[in-house]
């Protein structure tokens, strides 16, 4: 967490906008992006794809003891989130009531600071998720429509 300026900078499309990729051969999504499709290997064809900004919690935990870089955060929730197109993401869950965080809960992507670096260091930003009311089918359709534009 300390330095790694270029490492974090390189990941900006992935962390800010959840840019992953998609294999046009086996139709699988990958997040983060991969160099080759592990299913099709060299027969696959990967194209850039923005991951859905909504998903469902597959598993979660409340972390009470964080690693270095997270000393300021106290407790925080981490979840494995199914993005619905073959890709999963591990992320913090924020702005959500404890009783709403459960397996199967719908979540939406938020833009937050990740970890807390030293006061003078570069700030790292990225995705976290919050629990939302499950979308109705109409809402999902409307969202797809909007994303097309």
């Amino acid at each position: 967490m300390s330095d790694g300026l270029a490492l974090n900078w390189r990941r900006i499309p992935e962390r800010y906008a959840m840019k992953g990729n998609h294999c046009t051969n086996c139709k699988q999504d990958y997040f983060p992006s991969r160099m080759i499709c592990p299913n099709c290997r060299r027969k696959g064809h990967l194209v850039s794809k923005d991951m859905p900004r909504i998903g469902k919690i597959v598993s979660y935990t409340k972390v009470m003891v964080g690693p270095s870089g997270f000393e300021n955060e106290g407790n925080y929730y981490l979840a494995l989130i199914d993005l619905g197109s073959g890709a999963k993401v591990l992320s913090q869950i924020v702005d959500s009531d404890e009783q709403d965080i459960h397996i199967g809960a719908s979540v939406k992507k938020m833009f937050r600071k990740i970890g807390e670096v030293e006061e003078k260091g570069a700030i790292t930003y990225g995705y976290k998720f919050k629990v939302v009311k499950p979308l109705t089918e109409d809402q999902v359709e409307a969202l797809k429509e909007k994303n097309k534009k």
Binding site: T61, V63, Q92
Partner: peptide, 24 residues
């Protein structure tokens, strides 16, 4: 490192995620 530890995933947290699914 880039997709787990970066987001604060300690080892207990990763196994906790597995435990939660096993329990469920």
């Amino acid at each position: 490192q880039e997709t787990e530890l970066f987001h604060g995933a300690t080892f207990p947290a990763l196994y906790a995620l597995l435990a939660k699914v096993h329990m469920k």
